[in-house]
Simulated assay, not measured.
Amino acid sequence: MEYLKTNYSDIKEVMIGKVPAIIIEPKEEINKTLVFYHGWGSDKERQIFRGNIFASYGYRVVLPEARYHGERNVEKLDHEDKEVEGKYILKVIMHNIEEAPSIFNYIEENYPGNEIAVGGHSMGAITAGGLYAFKKDLKMAFIFNGINNWKELVRGVNELKNQDKIDEREFRINEFFLDMNPMDSPESFKDRPLVLYNGEDDDVIDPAGQESFVNEVEKVYEDKKLLDFKLFEMTGHQVTTQMLEEAIKFSKELAGF
């Protein structure tokens, strides 16, 4: 991690309740904090370079470690196994959401008066999208290669499972996501700044699922400039420098964050 340290920010590891996290702190005084969630099979350390980019533009960045990932992967899950992904990914997203209040409380206690945004890639983007729908005082969301249409999310995850019947626990998790589907609550997003960027050639999360969410939620936006959905050509399931540049530009110029 040494090579990722920069002269303009400090990097520290903390425990927030039971959640290991990395905080990237710009050296100048700031009042904006971004909680950024990593994707399936990744970890908090692999978000440091990305976090440094946000920090260089004046954001404190909190990088939580998801359950079954990084130092929390005590079960030694094989993230390359699609059946494992199908069995665990919704559990991880739900666990991220359950742990989020402790992270927000930590920020409010240690950095009083800060404005808070959420973001993430892939699984982390799904987490951030849900949190943005549920917590109305969040200032904006950066959703990279995610899907806020959780009906399509559940359908896609179930296709990964090589089984004829799901057990009761998995059924209850599916029901949670269907009942809490952000797409069914478009008013939760009304005129709130929202970045939704997907790779046009993404073969992991179909961008059509996110586009279906946008088509629904844009109906309630009076200021449609605050809903920034883009498909990036010749781009797969990745966060590109162009995506980061466009997101930060939107945040500074339109969202005021």
Results as ranks from 00 to 15, higher is better:
residue 4 L to D: 08
residue 6 T to C: 03
residue 7 N to D: 13
residue 7 N to E: 15
residue 7 N to K: 08
residue 8 Y to Q: 15
residue 10 D to Y: 05
residue 11 I to H: 01
residue 12 K to Q: 12
residue 14 V to N: 06
residue 18 K to S: 12
residue 21 A to L: 01
residue 22 I to Y: 15
residue 23 I to W: 10
residue 32 K to Y: 11
residue 32 K to R: 14
residue 35 V to N: 11
residue 46 R to S: 14
residue 48 I to E: 10
residue 53 I to K: 10
residue 53 I to M: 07
residue 57 Y to P: 05
residue 63 L to E: 11
residue 63 L to K: 06
residue 63 L to N: 11
residue 65 E to C: 07
residue 68 Y to L: 14
residue 71 E to N: 10
residue 73 N to R: 02
residue 75 E to A: 14
residue 79 H to T: 04
residue 82 K to M: 12
residue 85 E to R: 12
residue 85 E to T: 14
residue 87 K to W: 12
residue 89 I to W: 05
residue 96 N to E: 04
residue 97 I to R: 00
residue 98 E to G: 00
residue 100 A to L: 05
residue 100 A to S: 01
residue 102 S to R: 02
residue 105 N to D: 08
residue 110 N to Q: 12
residue 113 G to H: 00
residue 115 E to S: 14
residue 119 G to Q: 04
residue 120 G to H: 11
residue 122 S to H: 04
residue 123 M to S: 02
residue 126 I to N: 01
residue 126 I to F: 01
residue 128 A to T: 02
residue 128 A to Q: 04
residue 130 G to K: 13
residue 131 L to M: 09
residue 132 Y to P: 04
residue 132 Y to L: 06
residue 133 A to I: 02
residue 134 F to N: 07
residue 135 K to I: 13
residue 135 K to N: 15
residue 137 D to C: 05
residue 138 L to P: 03
residue 141 A to V: 08
residue 144 F to C: 07
residue 147 I to W: 01
residue 153 L to C: 10
residue 154 V to E: 09
residue 155 R to P: 10
residue 156 G to C: 03
residue 156 G to V: 02
residue 158 N to L: 12
residue 158 N to E: 13
residue 160 L to K: 13
residue 160 L to E: 02
residue 162 N to K: 10
residue 163 Q to I: 14
residue 167 D to S: 04
residue 167 D to E: 08
residue 167 D to R: 00
residue 169 R to Q: 06
residue 172 R to H: 09
residue 175 E to R: 08
residue 179 D to Y: 12
residue 180 M to N: 15
residue 182 P to A: 05
residue 185 S to K: 13
residue 188 S to T: 07
residue 188 S to L: 09
residue 193 P to G: 00
residue 196 L to F: 09
residue 196 L to Q: 09
residue 198 N to Y: 03
residue 202 D to T: 02
residue 203 D to A: 13
residue 207 P to L: 11
residue 209 G to Y: 08
residue 212 S to L: 09
residue 213 F to N: 00
residue 214 V to R: 06
residue 221 Y to Q: 06
residue 229 F to R: 01
residue 230 K to Q: 08
residue 234 M to G: 14
residue 236 G to V: 00
residue 240 T to E: 05
residue 241 T to A: 05
residue 247 A to Y: 10
residue 247 A to C: 04
residue 250 F to C: 11
residue 252 K to G: 08
residue 254 L to E: 12
residue 256 G to E: 05
